[in-house]
Design a protein around this nucleic acid. Structure first.
Lengths: 328, 328
DNA sequence: GGACGGTTAGGAAGAGTGTCTAACTATCGG
DNA sequence: CCGATAGTTAGACACTCTTCCTAACCGTCC
């Protein structure tokens, strides 16, 4: 961290710290914020004044009951930032518009009629219209998509910052938001297996497609992982047989990464549910004799969409702070 | 980054930034430091005064030739911090004492007569005595060692901060110091293969032992990676046959991590040299059809010892800054 | 029921710390 | 001697901290 600066940097740091606490912990009084940041009372007031002047926080109420005057309760202004999260598949597009507080304000599903980029852009525009949020107020669009890169064509159609991420990575982001830490997420989807790694509490990093992972099949012949665990053939398999195939690939992954926990997600995994996770655990322990736990994802709902919401929010929160006056 | 603070934090930040630049870029004048940090002229003077008072930097010369007075040239005081790096194997212990600038001031090898912890501690003490550096001035000891954890018994014997790291990780640290970025290092040593990952320019992280990675052997039978690439059997193999075995395991690693580059290191890899790397590349491309490059390590000398030096230096540099007066 | 004390929220005043700008001095080469 | 450059000094500015003050609210006592 080689940053140097003057009092301006200090102010930015303190504003960001206070704002961060308000985002993480919800509504807070001046006093609570003072304890969390460690700043002095007048400084806390200054910080809150700046945040309020910039429209980032508002007074949402007052305490009551205790002795003394009632403290003002501050909270993040939800309307100060907007993001759209998109889970895009060839068969369907789901988009969610959420405000700075993370509340989903509108949701929309559509079946793509046009080429992907155009269909996604139109869905984003539609979900904004639905909640009467002008497109220009949109700060960030995060798209879960596996396939050819759509960043270029989408950035051209939308004014906001556009980031395309792979489904496995976003599912891992959603998993992490549930409190799980230190895991590798194995995504088993129609279009092949993928992996995202979130060890040491750091943000999930997709190591991408693991479809070409060489594994032996039941007869000991050399095959690629994707041929065994994806496509219609995998759906037709009994849980035990599928678990066996998954475990073979997982054995290699576990040997390389040694995560304490492996989370299963994706269409194929979702169809199998907890029984599949149990069968995979048993098969894996038979193969590798490791004490790695295997579970089905704890996320209820669409993990890709929820992960995209989380990722988009993190991005919006970082940019919104730039709006504080006197920044320069 | 949720840090809040007052002008004190600012001062610490600026001191650290200036010190960091002096460490990275070598001797600098006030003016050069001013440009690098972006600080004003008087502030740069203040920072340098504090660093000099704390004994962390010294004036090592003056410029000449140009118009105007000759600028003072400042450099890190090498004697302000001391670290010992150790590469420990059951057969031999190598220790290097280096100063804050990274110069190795003494070096010592020994054959362990006693138990590892005691033998290492004695070697550390000996190398300090050799350079007439009192043990109490030692700030950090970084040990490359694979086996039972030695942190406890060593911390008891040495006053300094002790960190034990695995050889693969330290070899990757050394590799990174040569300018290589974005790679996975495959360590092929006597005691089995290990892996260290340094992607995205982040510090190398050992994912540890990959000895139990399941791989097929020549006959298609399920084996563990360590049985194929380590031990006396591996040494006896022809380069082509060994490369084939390495590539099989590497195919799984590459599928999981997809690093742009794989670096081979360790005794077995060193014996094979560049020809082995070439043969592994060919075999890997035949197996996995990826465009992953494979090279032998670019580090000349003992990669573990050199990596331990780098890691120890980074640790010392972080602690030394705490010595600046008025910190609290 | 009304006055009072204890407690807490918020603000105001002044000091402290660290930085910046601008002016100044000293030094070197031509 | 003159122009250019290194470094210091002086004063202003920004942000924070400590300390003190006022106002509000609750409970208790008369």
């Amino acid at each position: 961290m080689q940053l140097a600066g003057s009092s301006r940097l200090l102010r930015v740091l303190n504003d960001a710290a206070a704002f961060g606490h308000l985002l993480d912990r919800g509504p807070l009084t001046r006093g609570e914020l003072r304890e969390l940041t460690g700043l002095a009372k007048p400084t806390t007031s200054d910080v809150l004044r700046r945040l309020r002047d910039a429209g980032l926080v508002t007074v949402v109420g007052r305490t009551s009951g205790g002795p003394g005057p009632n403290a003002e309760v501050y909270a993040v202004n939800p309307d100060a930032g907007w993001a759209v999260a998109v889970a895009a598949r060839p068969s369907a597009i789901t988009a969610a518009l959420c405000d700075l507080s993370g509340t989903v304000r509108a949701r929309r599903e559509s079946t793509p009629a046009a080429e992907p980029a155009r269909a996604i852009a139109e869905t984003v525009q539609a979900v904004c219209r639905q909640a009467r949020v002008p497109l220009r107020r949109l700060d960030h669009v995060r798209i879960g998509w596996s396939g050819p890169d759509l960043t270029e064509p989408l950035a051209g159609r939308l004014r906001a910052e556009v980031v395309v991420d792979n489904p496995a990575n976003l599912a891992a982001t959603a998993e992490r938001a549930t409190g799980t830490t230190g895991f590798a997420l194995l995504w088993l989807g129609e279009d092949g297996p993928a992996l995202s790694v979130a060890l040491d509490g750091s943000a999930p990093r997709g190591s991408g497609d693991i479809g070409r992972l060489p594994v032996p099949d039941e007869h000991g012949d050399r095959r690629e992982f994707r041929d065994l665990v994806s496509g219609p053939a995998a759906h037709a398999l009994a849980i035990e047989a599928l678990a066996e195939r998954i475990a073979v690939g997982l054995a290699a992954i576990v040997a390389v990464l040694d995560p304490p926990l492996v989370v299963l997600a994706g269409d194929v995994a979702a169809a199998g549910g907890a029984p599949l996770a149990g069968a995979v655990t048993a098969a894996l322990h038979r193969l590798a004799a490791r004490h790695t736990r295997v579970t089905a994802t704890g996320v209820s709902g669409d993990p890709v969409l929820l992960g995209a919401v989380d990722a988009a929010l993190a991005a919006v929160r970082a940019t919104v702070l730039d709006r504080i006056g006197g920044q320069r």
